Structure formats: structure tokens, C-alpha cells
Amino acid sequence: MRPVEVDEDFAAFVGAHQDKLQRAAFLLCGEREQARDLAQEALTRTAQHWSRVRHEMPLAYARRILYTAHVDQWRKTGPEVLTDGLPERSVGDDGSWAQSLTIRRALQQLPPRVRVVVVLRYFEDLDVATTARTLGIAQGTVKSQTSDGIRRLRELLSEVGTDA
């Protein structure tokens, strides 16, 4: 690789978007160190082509590199690790994750109607039509309350702590 001169525009780009790229990478791979490496790879490749992409859509370019680098890495290592024995069952396999204190606290902060819709849709695994019939409301109301509830849960759970 050739050395890359970093200009002020690129430094500002990195400052504004590095955390977003690392969060996206963490969601892809699930490991913090690997996520940092993927984000760094995306930023390095973006820097190499900065003069060409700076006036276009540099964040989209960096995200594309991030996803491509992840797929390349996955292809090299493969999705599975072969072992002689079966893995032990994880603690959360029985659905107890839904009972965690963090989830319950977040759910309690939702408005009651929205909470009921979210619980029926995601914890009880009901479809939109069945949820609407169960609550005696329109399917559109179920959809909008589901959307509002999930958005709010994401906000609440991200406040709890994701330092990816």
C-alpha cells in the first residue's frame, strides 16, 4: 500500500463517522476488536481514494468497503468452526433473555398500549392481524405502535450502554 496523505476534509470525515462505522462493523461481526479492524480497513481504503470520493458520497463508499471487507473476511475464515463435540447450550437459549432486568425496565418505560403491542408482536410472536384482532384495533395502529415501540426501545437500550 502506498502512504496516504491525510487532509483536513478527510480528518473531519473520520471524526464525524468513525463511531458509526465501528457500530455497523460490530453489528456485522459481533466482536469489538474485529469491528475496530473492519472500520479501520474501511477508513484506510476510503483515504486511498479520497480525492475521487470526497465530493460524491464518502460515507456510502466507506460503508460499502466495510461490508465488502466483512464478507471477504467471512469467506476466508468461514462461518463455522468444526469441533469434535457439540457446544454446550448457552444460558440464553431458553428465552430467559426476555426476562432480563434491562429489557423489563425498558419495556416499563413504554406507554401501556405500545408496550402491549410490542410484547404481543415480539415476545408472543403474533402477527399484525392477530395482534390487531386481540386488541380490537386497526392493523395500521398495530404497525405504527410497533414502530414507535421498537424505536423507543432502541433508544432506551442504547442508553444502557453500547460502547461499540
Rank of each mutant, 00 (worst) to 15 (best):
T83Y: 10
L86E: 13
A62K: 02
A62V: 00
V71Y: 10
D72T: 02
E88P: 00
T83W: 03
I65Y: 03
K76I: 09
S90T: 08
D84Q: 14
T68S: 14
T83V: 02
T77M: 10
E88T: 06
L82S: 04
L86C: 08
P87L: 12
R75Y: 03
E88Y: 05
D84S: 06
R63I: 08
K76F: 08
R63L: 14
Y61N: 11
P87K: 13
R64F: 07
D72V: 00
R75G: 01
R63G: 05
R63P: 07
L82H: 03
T77R: 12
R75F: 04
P79F: 05
A69H: 02
I65V: 15
R63N: 15
L82M: 09
K76P: 00
S90W: 05
P79Y: 04
V71A: 13
A62F: 07
T83D: 07
D84L: 07
L66E: 13
V71S: 11
V71C: 14
L82G: 01
R75S: 02
Y61C: 11
H70M: 03
A69K: 06
A62D: 13
A62I: 01
L66R: 09
R75W: 03
R64I: 00
Y67I: 06
D72W: 08
L82I: 03
D72F: 09
I65H: 00
R63S: 15
D72L: 04
T68K: 06
R89K: 08
D72P: 05
L66T: 02
V81K: 07
I65K: 06
L66A: 09
R75E: 12
I65Q: 00
D72E: 09
P79H: 06
Y67G: 01
L86R: 07
T68R: 10
A62S: 15
